[in-house]
């Protein structure tokens, strides 16, 4: 059928990366991102279990998020989250001004906005795993949430946590 043929043709004309390997399709990329998130989720669950064992269980969602920003972040990244914002209706925004996994990355500033976008896109790959860690840790402490992450300027990273039933 034509739809299938169209998809195949698209796959054949995929642009090549600098290494000569065809660039991944968006479908493979989505699967890869989901996979990275799932790996992080399991790690987050384990970390939350391990590092909350000695302390009383956080009672409110805000307490859980604070535990995440302080204790868990310290354990995983040797620093705390720099800024926490919330709308008090289930949405939390965590900003790490110097997120360790991104701290050694750089962008060629002379090459303009294209280089900047490419650099940020490369950095984005490194945010799926930590997003999964957050999601897993929250789940271990009884909060269902979706987490999205982005970096608009290296080496900072912003994680947006939207708990189940949150109102924007």
């Amino acid at each position: 059928d034509t739809k299938k043929d169209g998809a195949l043709a698209a796959a054949d004309t995929r642009p090549l990366t600098s290494l000569g390997i065809p660039a991944t399709t968006s479908a493979t990329q989505d699967a890869m991102h989901a996979r990275l998130g799932a790996l992080g989720y399991r790690v987050g669950q384990g970390l939350a279990e391990r590092f909350s064992a000695q302390s009383p269980r956080p009672q409110t969602p805000l307490d859980v998020i604070k535990f995440l920003c302080k204790d868990l972040w310290l354990a995983a990244f040797r620093k705390q989250i720099d800024n926490l914002k919330t709308n008090h209706r289930g949405i939390f925004v965590l900003t790490d001004n110097r997120f360790p996994p991104l701290s050694k990355m750089s962008i060629d500033r002379r090459a303009g906005s294209k280089a900047r976008d490419e650099g940020l896109a490369r950095a984005q790959l490194y945010l799926f795993f930590p997003s999964g860690v957050i999601r897993g840790a929250l789940s271990g402490l009884g909060i269902e949430a979706t987490v999205t992450a982005e970096s608009t300027e290296l080496p900072s990273a912003t994680f947006q946590i939207k708990t189940k039933g949150a109102k924007a």
């Binding site: 799932a38 790996l39 399991r42 790690v43 384990g46 970390l47 391990r50 354990a75 995983a76």
Partner: peptide, 18 residues
């Protein structure tokens, strides 16, 4: 630069399990 050993243990374990 050091990293928490348990983070490594958990991450490696997760990769092997996957």
């Amino acid at each position: 630069d050091k990293i928490n050993a348990e983070v490594v243990t958990l991450t490696y374990g997760t990769i092997v399990a996957q």
